Computed example of a mutant assay.
Amino acid sequence: MSKLMRRAKLSRYQGVWCLMLPGLLLLPMAAGWAAPGVPALAVTADGNGEQTYTVTLQILGLMTVLTLLPAAVMVMTSFTRIIVVFSILRQALGLAQTPSSQILIGLALFLTFFIMSPVLDKAYQEGVKPYFQEEISVTDALARVREPFHHFMIAQTRETDLKLFAEISGREAFESPEQVPFSLLVPAFITSELKTAFQIGFLLFIPFLIIDLVVASVLMAMGMMMLSPMLVSLPFKLLLFVLIDGWSLLMGTLASSFYVAS
């Protein structure tokens, strides 16, 4: 029994050494890997007084920007006005789920890219492209990317909304539109976009509302009070929308409203 126990202990020790041997052999390589290289988090200053960031910090900033990209698309582009108008149009037609919300969002996104293409192209040519070519620093690239969006949002924002948020924040009037910070411009821009979207929606609603009133009056005069006026007026509203080529007219009007204002 004692011999068997000794053999078992020896085999156990041999198994442990077999597991530890690869780790011992990899220790010199691990020491080489742990040698000091490029620091992960570092900020250095050049001769011009500007600061440069390590690749790790730049990647971290890029990932942070990507997480905020959906919110930026909603509050800094034409997406808000377009999707609100589409939603009001669907309500005016009396269609609860047609077109579906996914279709409306996709259409609004691609129309937003079409409208914002001059802004995006200018931001890429003046900010992103020189940064990738290592001609400017990160701070200069951000400032150049910010400028086209700032100009676009200022062109769509009402002065009354800017004054409202300036008074709320306790700031005085700005001498030029370029001095308006993004913290004040974004809420003023969203407020103006919602106002404009509701104005367009009101104009869209009127002809369909007239059709509903006419159909309801005719049904009431004929004594068909049990028949829903919405059910009868829906084909007429669809026919009117198709005859005037409503989708092309609506999207063309939305796109031109941004181009004319900017």
Rank of each mutant, 00 (worst) to 15 (best):
A8R: 11
K9V: 12
S11N: 13
Y13Q: 14
Y13V: 14
G15F: 12
V16N: 01
W17L: 14
W17I: 13
M20C: 11
L24R: 02
L24A: 14
L26Q: 05
P28K: 06
M29K: 11
A30T: 08
A30D: 07
A31N: 08
A34L: 14
A35C: 05
P36T: 10
A42I: 13
V43K: 07
T44R: 07
T44H: 11
A45D: 07
G47M: 05
N48P: 00
G49I: 06
E50C: 10
Q51F: 09
V55H: 11
T56Y: 15
L57I: 09
Q58E: 09
L60C: 08
L66P: 00
L66M: 12
T67N: 09
L68I: 06
L69N: 00
V73C: 03
V75C: 04
S78D: 03
F79E: 05
F79L: 14
F79W: 03
I82C: 09
V84G: 06
V84E: 02
F86T: 03
A92Y: 03
L93P: 04
G94T: 02
A96Q: 15
A96Y: 07
P99H: 10
P99K: 09
Q102K: 01
L107R: 05
F110E: 06
L111S: 13
F114G: 01
P118D: 02
V119L: 06
K122T: 06
E126S: 12
V128P: 02
K129F: 00
P130Q: 04
Y131S: 02
Y131R: 02
F132W: 07
Q133P: 00
Q133E: 14
E135T: 04
S137F: 01
S137C: 01
L142Y: 04
A143Q: 13
V145N: 01
E147N: 09
E147V: 08
P148T: 09
P148N: 10
F152A: 09
F152Y: 15
I154K: 04
A155H: 12
T157I: 06
R158D: 14
R158G: 13
E159A: 12
E159S: 13
T160G: 05
L162W: 03
F165R: 02
R171F: 01
E172P: 00
A173T: 05
A173C: 00
Q179L: 09
Q179H: 10
V180W: 08
F182N: 08
L185S: 07
L194A: 15
I200W: 06
G201L: 02
L203S: 11
F205M: 15
F205Y: 15
P207M: 07
F208I: 03
I211S: 08
D212W: 06
M220Y: 00
M222L: 15
G223V: 03
M224A: 11
M224V: 07
M226A: 15
M226I: 14
L227G: 04
L231M: 13
K237M: 09
L239Y: 05
F241M: 07
V242W: 09
V242H: 04
L243I: 14
D245P: 03
S256G: 01
S257F: 05
S257V: 08
Y259C: 00
